[in-house]
Design a protein around this nucleic acid. Sequence first.
RNA 1: GGGCCGUUAGCUCAGUGGCAGAGCAUCCGCCUUUUAAGCGGAGGGUCGCAGGUUCAAUUCCUGCACGGCCUACCA
Length: 499
Amino acid sequence: MEGINPLREERLRKLALLRERGLDPYPTKFERTHQSAQLQSEHASLAAGTETQTRVRIAGRLTARRLMGGASFLDLRDGSGRIQLHAASDKLGQEQYDLLTMLDIGDFIGLEGLIFRTRKGELSVRVEKFQLLSKALLPLPEKWHGLQDVEMRYRQRYLDLLANEESRRIAILRSKIVSAMRRYLDSQGFLEVETPTLQPLYGGATARPFTTYHNDLEQTLYLRISDELYLKRLIIGGLDKVYEICKDFRNEGISWKHNPEFTMMECYWAYADYQDMMQLTEEMVASIAKEVLGTTSIKFGEHTLELTPPWKRLPMRDALLQYTGIDIDKYRTLPELQSEIKQQKLSVDLQKTWGQQVDELMKVFVEPKLIQPTFIMNHPLELSPLAKRKADAPQLVERFEPLVAGMELGNAFSELNDPLDQRERFLAQEEMLRTGDDEAQRLDEDFITAMEHGMPPTGGLGIGIDRLVMILTGATSIREVILFPALRTVKAKSETAGE
RNA sequence: GGGCCGUUAGCUCAGUGGCAGAGCAUCCGCCUUUUAAGCGGAGGGUCGCAGGUUCAAUUCCUGCACGGCCUACCA
């Protein structure tokens, strides 16, 4: 691997040869008339063995060669698809023919030629003129097994995209999903806004932050773990419907559903509550699925997910009653709840507080079972310092999490807008921080000041974009839907093939 | 963080305590409708890295690096 790469040396030799002949291996521009997919569809009805006088100019990367002596076939790929080229020495002249067949797989060319369909039925372009557009020095992955090495697929995603159709499909779908989401929110009158990534105090979620430092301001800054508190400031400022799609950063472990930087959509809607947000969620996701995939029935592993609204509403209490047999309303203190857990012989880690214990029961016994879209609602107060209490059950909040395929897709609630209550909740969190919970939330005086100026009743929703893309594409790892997932940096070995 | 597994040619993968293998790719020769083109020949390896055991290690042992899966926290 280190030292000289003979395949690269060979290509350098060809590059030098081209330069000797006065050819520029890296020209600036090529005017195309068509892309390959367009040709395929425009000539779909052309019969096998038929020639045309249709002259086209196309460009792309050579991906395969079938050299057959005096005439050869080459495959050309551009951003839209693939088309076959036919090169014949009696059409091109021997010199041009030799030059074309000397080019390597991976090289870019532009060409002009006539459309025809071969006897075997493959639409092709007969090359009349061509030009090298870019010489590749390193070989592409193998042609029919593609690129399998997972590490190389993530580290050199460009090779993965070239070699593996599935990677290309997911990348394109992701873009379409985000675009469809924007279209949906825009159509509902939401205003897209941007808020700080670098924040003097992190907030809006329970997570450890990444810390950085601004030299000129001489102060510590945090990469946002959420944009929630900023978006609510905008609600206070009279922007009644806002959303932001942005990267959040959480200094946590990496898993099949966690990447340290991930994309989140958060939206806030004044005068709405969590019931409205549920409806928004199910309608938005179904609308995106229909627009992007043409259906709301989604294959995911061995399951078929049905995303058509309405989704099931399941209060946490009912869910736990159903899956563990425990009625949390009857065991309202930690000791009572834990003794009942032992009574029921449930195998679950014991937690420090009642709310965390309930959460743990949910994670172990309920969430993995919820395959079809389900809103789990009415969470314990202490896990939700930014959510409004339920009027009839003050130890619970008006909150829900959409679960699909056993995965939390997001989080939403009726936003707490009582500044005095908000201060108390923050103080409780600060207390948790002091007693060793390094994910507890921080007291944000500036945010409380904003709220003291008056905040309307508001519904808020966050959707994990990466997970939504996983569900809609059938990807079973978040790394398949993030083009450049977090990986440990390879230690420098100064091995850049050659030089 | 813990457990299990992987790392062999540019790529995809076999394999063995005793000369390192295949297909694709590359190079040479033949071939004007092929498409995983075909036929004939050739080159290409620090078997992840470092130690140890052994007459001999790519193979067995230990450590390390990178990665994967499971598990724990978070969306």
